[in-house]
Structures are given as C-alpha cells and as structure tokens.
C-alpha cells in the first residue's frame, strides 16, 4: 500500500494570491521521500495538507489509507514542523513524558521509550536541562524525538536538518535510513540538493507547481544532467516555456 496518495491536491491562499498545486503524487511505503524546492515553493503547505493541519481547497490526500483529517492517524503519523515547537522551561525528559502521555503512552512503556529516544538522539546527558539552554541542533533532535514517540509508520518532517552542522546531519540521515529499513515511511522537505540525492524518491516543487516526481537517478537520466541542481534548473526552464 502507498503511504500517501495526493490527487489534484490544491490549496489556495486568496489573500496572498498564492495557489499551491494541483499536485498528483504517490509516496510508496517504506521509502525516504524528499519534497525538494526553494523557500516559498509550497513544501510546507503540502506537508501540512498531508498532516491534516490544512484543508485542501480542491482534491484530496489519503494518508495510510485514511483521509488526512482522520483522528486515527494521530497515533500512526509523526509530524515535525519547520520551527521547533518546544517549551523553553521544560527539559527534554519532561517534553518526552508530556507528549508521550498525549500519545497514550504511560508507565514502564513510556519510561523505556523516553530512555530509548534520549539515547538515539544523544540527549541523555542534557536530558534534565531546560530546553532554553539547548543549541539549535539539540532542539531539532528533541523535536524529532517527539515526532518518533508513537513509533509512527509515517514520519512527516519539515526541513528536519535545517541549520544543523554537517556531522549531525550525517547522523540524522543514518537514522532516517535505519528507520526506513525498519519499514517507516519518511517524507521530508529540503532545499538542499545533496540531501535530495540521499532520498529514494524526490518531488521537485517550484512556485506551487510539481515539476517532477521520481527516483533521483531517474530525474538525472531524463533531464540528461549531472547534478540535481542542474536537473532542477532544466525542469524549471522547461516549465517556464
């Protein structure tokens, strides 16, 4: 089964005179899928539509076989917004316990999950410190840990590596690969082409329109280019004509 199916998915923002879509897109299960494009191209809007945090103006999106607003998805999908939504006064442990309880975890199960995620994100030592003392990278890792709390089948990650140092980005990508191998579908947004190259499949977006969606090697082959940057330019120019 495909993890996400978008059909004619469109969202209008009349006040800003912006339209995102229509987008037809399939995200296969168990892949790392990248929504790739510059700032303002509609990546975040698409992720929010998939997360059910926005309602389409036209078309529909199906997530794990359910409508994106279906409440059952809340336990099966992990969502991480572009901005770190954290409580500055609370520690990482307190965040994970709180959101874990919101996901219905409790007792030993919750304690084990908190320990596991702290260890996976390298936040064990800082786990009891208030988040206001954290660096940007630590906040990002905590945000990701929260999205992973419910052991989701699908992860929606909006710019998960933005502002992180290369070492941390490398570690996170290793983690994404592990999760994907274990069967988790990961849909992430990025504007970095080196990250796009690591995805199993990518979708190029520009000014609210979908340029292409395919495996990175296939995009290079079809555009007869050597890099994804060049492929993006070629597709954008073709679109403009």
């Amino acid at each position: 089964m495909d993890a996400i199916v978008c059909h004619d998915l469109t969202r209008r923002f009349p006040q800003a005179h912006i339209t995102i879509g229509p987008v037809d897109l399939i995200v296969p299960s168990g892949t790392v899928f990248g929504l790739v494009g510059p700032s303002g191209c509609g990546k975040t809007t698409l992720v929010r539509l998939m997360a059910g945090l926005l309602t389409p103006s036209r078309g529909h999106v199906e997530v794990l076989g359910l409508g994106s607003h279906d409440h059952r998805l809340r336990r099966r999908v992990g969502y991480m917004a572009q901005a770190d939504a954290l409580y500055p006064e609370l520690s990482a442990v307190e965040h994970l316990r709180f959101f874990g309880a919101a996901y219905g975890l409790h007792g030993k199960g919750l304690a084990l999950r908190v320990d596991e995620l702290l260890s996976r994100t390298g936040l064990e030592k800082a786990g009891l410190r208030a988040v206001r003392e954290y660096s940007g990278g630590m906040r990002r890792r905590l945000s990701l840990a929260i999205a992973l709390l419910p052991s989701p089948s699908l992860l929606l990650l909006d710019e998960p590596t933005i502002g992180l140092d290369p070492l941390l980005r490398r570690d996170l990508w290793a983690w994404f690969t592990d999760l994907s191998r274990a069967g988790t579908t990961i849909l992430l947004t990025t504007h970095a082409m080196d990250e796009a190259a690591r995805c199993a499949r990518i979708a190029f977006l520009r000014e609210g329109s979908l340029l292409t969606a395919d495996a990175p090697q296939e995009v290079l082959r079809r555009t007869r280019t050597q890099s994804l940057d060049d492929a993006f330019i070629a597709l954008a120019e073709r679109e403009a004509v």
Binding site: A51, L53, R74, Y79, A81, A85, L86, F99, A102, I146
Partner: peptide, 13 residues
C-alpha cells in the same frame, strides 16, 4: 505562538 499548540493538536489529544 511557539507552535506547541499545533504540535498538541497533532497528537491524539
């Protein structure tokens, strides 16, 4: 404003 409400609304709460 800090975005935690959206995050909360995305949990089963």
């Amino acid at each position: 404003l800090q975005g935690t409400l959206e995050r909360l609304l995305y949990t089963p709460l």
